[in-house]
């Protein structure tokens, strides 16, 4: 690992000031992704700002909203009673990600900030517009089995690797961030970006801003939820395709539904058209098939990931069916 200096601020203000003084610095919380990137020479920060002393570990109920501090561990969040009872989809998604050892280290904010696992991004001998802007994309003409089928650009076809973020996108969460100019709120679905011409930017967080919390509004999705993750082995692998579904069904009618996918785009991929098509309908296999068909319109595949289109089509139907019958 390249050498770096290290500071451990005691307050949010001090952490943000430390970043403002040194733009080559990086915040570190769990470190499970950042240290991995540093060992590979992909990230080369000259200073680490250890934010683990900051008071951002609380999970609390604010009225009907669930407030989750940015430093809450993935394992603690998945096991928390309020999460299991109010937002079981989030708990399911968290437990589908990584291993228990990693979940015991990884934080909510860090999970959101993790980088793509595209092998061309990780291999510093290969071109990658995300790692080094304007160097080209190794994946578009290379091995792209794991890559995006939605929202990609010629500059980057990487996918966001998180499971947690797919659930938070489906649940219409809000991200709270703090910076030198104070605090602001970002809708979760606007937090991560599509690659476009700036694939080096994963999200809309400014360099000197820090995620402080995530908030989930109240919703009726406590019973009919499903996080389906399809991967190359049964556990502890990144998704080829994942689907998060949360439905409100009464009198055999879908009153409200949220669907988001992972492993298919540069950000958690919400399916608003499929959601619209299902709202007010009966929860039948035919309607689910219709919605899945709408969802995969516009999919663009590459040399090795053509299977993802059919996998997405089938996975959406399976997840909807599982959620409806849960």
């Amino acid at each position: 690992m390249n050498p770096f200096s290290y500071v451990r601020p005691n307050s949010l203000k001090a952490a943000i000031e430390a970043m403002a003084r040194d733009h080559s610095a990086r915040f570190i919380a769990g470190g499970t992704n950042l240290l991995d990137l540093m060992k590979n020479g992909v990230a080369l920060p000259e200073k680490l700002i250890d934010i683990n002393q900051l008071p951002l570990r609380e999970i609390r109920q604010d009225g009907n909203t669930l407030h989750i501090g940015a430093l809450v561990l993935n394992s603690d969040l998945a096991a928390h009673d309020l999460v299991k009872t109010q937002h079981p989809l989030l708990s399911e998604a968290l437990l589908a990600g990584a291993s228990q050892q990693l979940r015991n280290m990884a934080t909510v904010g860090g999970n959101m900030m993790q980088r793509t696992r595209c092998s061309y991004f990780y291999d510093t001998s290969m071109p990658c517009n995300k790692r080094q802007p304007n160097s080209g994309c190794g994946a578009t003409g290379g091995i792209n089995r794991m890559h995006a089928i939605f929202g990609a650009s010629d500059n980057c076809i990487a996918v966001h690797p998180s499971d947690m973020c797919v659930a938070l996108a489906a649940l219409d969460a809000t991200v709270l961030v703090a910076g030198p100019k104070g605090e602001r709120r970002i809708p979760f679905t606007d937090f991560h970006r599509l690659p476009g011409n700036t694939p080096q930017l994963d999200n809309n967080l400014a360099k000197n801003e820090l995620i402080t919390a995530v908030e989930i509004p109240p919703h009726p999705f406590t019973k009919h939820t499903c996080y389906l993750k399809v991967r190359d082995r049964a556990s502890y692998a990144f998704a080829l395709v994942s689907v998060a579904v949360a439905m409100d069904i009464s009198d055999n009618v879908i009153r409200n539904v949220r669907i988001a996918m992972g492993g298919v785009a540069h950000k958690p991929w919400r399916l608003p058209d499929a959601e619209k098509a299902l709202t007010g309908k009966t929860p039948t296999s035919d309607n689910f098939r219709l919605a899945a068909n709408i969802a995969i319109q516009g999919a663009k595949t590459y040399a090795h990931n053509g299977f993802k289109k059919e996998l997405a089509f089938n996975s959406i139907q399976t997840a909807l069916l599982k959620a409806a019958t849960a």
Partner: peptide
Amino acid sequence: PLVLKAAQHDEAIAAVFEKM
């Protein structure tokens, strides 16, 4: 100087290659 400013707020600090 830069580190000096930081030290007013930070609990722990180590420069590059410096043991702490």
